[in-house]
């Protein structure tokens, strides 16, 4: 079953009167439960592509269908609601809310979704335990290491069981050991919860873990290697 279907996607900017095509007629299909890395050099259009798939940016042309729904037709209000209920985000620099505890950072998104207290508490406890922070639930971000903060971010992205998770350079700020642990964790959660992961990365260690690698160059898909691990 396809979760994401991208057809003829184009994103062009005008920079100092010059047209720059960041994403150039990209076609991409992502199936449920895939663990996909989008790789390519800086400026190849990875982040722009993910932003458009995540509903954060509007394409110049082309369509993006998530579960058969064309999100390019949604207005900004509908897009915010779509993101809240369908997509989990993991950012390079964690982006946790410093005044909230790990538990509150994770529960916040579920509360915005309108989940009841009991469901929220159970799921937050379950997911934080799954990412190995069951004993740090009441710690604030500044009391956690970088790796622990990124694990909270993973828990936050997964808490509401989204259709897919977009992770933009999730390991860029982490050391090797922490990266390894985080990737193992995400892989485990991907398998256990069958949540689709879509990464953009430079990191070879992430590439090594991916089961599908999409290579972008100058905004075009130049390589798409599926079922690498199988």
């Amino acid at each position: 079953m396809n979760v994401i279907e991208v057809e003829n996607l184009v994103k062009a900017y005008t920079d100092l009167a010059l047209e720059v095509v960041a994403v150039d007629h990209v076609n991409l299909t992502v199936k449920k439960g895939e663990f996909t890395a989008i790789v390519g050099p800086s400026g190849s259009g990875k982040t722009t592509l993910l932003n458009m798939i995540g509903g954060l940016d509007k394409p110049t042309s082309g369509t993006i269908r998530v579960n058969n729904k064309d999100i390019t037709q949604l207005n900004s209000k509908e897009l915010i609601n779509f993101r809240l209920h369908n997509i989990g985000f993991i950012f390079q620099s964690y982006n946790l809310i410093p005044v909230l505890t790990a538990k509150e950072n994770v529960s916040f998104i579920m509360e915005m979704q309108g989940e009841n207290r009991k469901t929220v508490d159970e799921r937050v406890s379950e997911i934080l335990t799954a990412v190995g922070l069951g004993d740090r639930m009441n710690s604030r971000p500044n009391q956690l290491s970088g790796g622990q903060q990124q694990r909270v971010a993973v828990a936050r992205a997964m808490a509401s069981r989204p259709q897919f998770i977009i992770a933009d350079e999730p390991t860029a700020n982490l050391d090797s050991k922490t990266t390894e642990k985080l990737l193992d964790l995400m892989e485990e959660l991907n398998e256990k919860e069958n949540i689709t992961f879509l990464f953009s990365t430079h990191d070879q260690r992430v590439v090594n873990k991916a089961r599908r690698i999409v290579v972008l160059e100058d905004g075009k898909v130049v390589e798409d290697n599926e079922n690498i691990k199988q």
């Binding site: 995540g54 954060l56 209000k77 915010i80 609601n81 993101r83 809240l84 209920h85 997509i87 989990g88 985000f89 950012f91 620099s93 982006n95 809310i97 410093p98 998104i109 915005m112 979704q113 936050r156």
Partner: peptide
């Protein structure tokens, strides 16, 4: 700014 951007990205609407 970054935190607010993140909140809007993950689905905090304008009203919130």
């Amino acid at each position: 700014t970054k935190e607010l951007g993140m909140l809007m990205a993950i689905g905090m609407n304008r009203k919130r």
